[in-house]
Amino acid sequence: MIQNFISMNGYGIYVWSSFFATFIVCAIVYYKTNKTLKKYEKEFAKELSELSEAERKLVLEKSKIASQVLASSNKSI
């Protein structure tokens, strides 16, 4: 039964290649997208930390996004 499932009556090579290619490409794109997102979050948090205390407070007060990015960047660390 497992043999039949793998060979797919002779079409296994085509069927498995299609599924494998799709999921490998999807996994690579997910990994790269996630890595880029984390990199930007980290860089943003770093730039925020380089600001003076008053400037940082002002940025966090003015921008909801800045405080949310900082929170999610802290979570991922």
């Binding site: 997208t33 997102l37 930007y40 860089e43 943003f44 730039e47 996004i65 800045a66 990015v69």
Partner: peptide
Amino acid sequence: YKTEIIRIKKKNI
């Protein structure tokens, strides 16, 4: 999209 938003915010920090 989130990355793009952060990129823009980072540019305008």
